[in-house]
Simulated assay, not measured.
Amino acid sequence: MRRALVLALALTTCLATAGPGLAADPAPAPSGTVAAGSSIPPKGWKAPRNAMGQPDLSGQWSNATLTPLTRNPRISSKATLTAAEARGFEKLWAEALAESDAPTDPNEGTAEVQAKLSSSKLVEIRPDFIAAGGDTGGYNTFWIDPGTHLVEINGEYRSSILTTPNGMPAARKAGAPAPRGGGFRDIYDSYENRSHGERCISGFGRNSGPPMLPNGYYNNNYQIMQTPDAVVIEVEMIHDARIIRLNATHRTDGLRPWMGDSIGRYEGDTLVVETTNIQEQQQFMGSWKTLTVTEWFTRLSPTKILYRFQVADPQMWDAPWGGEYTFNTLNGRVYEYACHEGNYALAGILGGARRIEKDAAEAAAKAPAAAAAAKGKTGGQ
């Protein structure tokens, strides 16, 4: 659970790379500092129940994984890999990460840092890691903790989280809004224009969801707590508490809470969650107003929870689509992600913008006088 010392880098893995993948039937199918173990339970094992008789999902979990949201041909063009293929890729990843995990030379400029990253094995496998270099040098891969294993479900190793045939989202309807990301980078009028991650309101990825997705970089840790009336998922990044109301109905007051309005129910050994009323500022690939996200949480083994999701928006996609991965037991616990709104960085960003505006205004005011002086020196020619 490493903490980055600078502002979080932009998420490319989930939102820029992301199928009619899940059937409507929610019946369940029989990876950092994460406990290893297969999703196939030991012989005779039964999914545990808590004191309230609910399927026991409580505890500390991580969804860190090397499996990207959408299929990456650098990993495989197939939906699944053999155990040998998976181990080979994980070994290649570990070597590439170790190669890039060198101390940063304080005398190197941004161009030199980016050049080294661009030619590294790490970026060859994951091009989005070029963002780690940042516009000002960023930070090295010591701070990166994306996981060490591919997703394994029922003995199959997955090349993508999405379960669509091509490992990509469903086709977008004609005229549907394009996916939106960022938009705040060069807008400095107000703190309200800055990103949620920068303002410490929510994580820079989709860790809190819904759908809940690993961000591909670090801090992919969770704590799940259960009560008779609710399930609470504490999200390390960025200290969100996602509250799922059990056996309830969706709100009708028009309010759109952070992370949407989630209601849940237990079906056998599975927690089923449906979320609507998602905020525009937390849109998923351009969808929010008529977006419905359905999620299934099923305990697979002593060390794994199967997480599946489906997104549906009749105004956005031709059909519902989704994916699946596993939460894995965390060897440790989730501590506070020490991010706080209104810190020095935000004040510095806005203060720097005001200084640039002031300098530009002063230069513009001096321009007429300078032009007049020059004209006088040349005799009006």
Rank of each mutant, 00 (worst) to 15 (best):
E108H: 03
L97I: 07
R87N: 10
G88M: 03
P68R: 08
E95Y: 04
A94T: 11
E112N: 02
T110M: 03
E112W: 01
T65C: 11
P103A: 04
S100M: 12
N63K: 10
D105R: 01
L69W: 14
E108Q: 09
D101L: 04
E99G: 03
P106Y: 04
A98R: 05
I75M: 11
P106I: 09
P68C: 13
E90K: 09
N63W: 11
Q60R: 15
L92K: 10
K91N: 09
W93C: 00
L66F: 07
W61R: 03
K91W: 03
E85M: 10
A98P: 03
R74A: 15
L81T: 09
S76L: 12
L117D: 04
D105E: 06
A98S: 02
S62N: 06
R87Y: 11
A79G: 08
E108M: 05
E108R: 03
L92Y: 05
A94I: 06
A83H: 15
K91L: 09
E99A: 12
S76W: 15
T80Y: 06
A84N: 11
L92E: 12
T82I: 12
L69A: 14
A102T: 13
E112Q: 07
N72G: 07
L117E: 01
I75L: 10
W61Y: 10
T65H: 11
K78H: 13
A86E: 07
W61A: 00
N107L: 03
S100Q: 10
A84T: 14
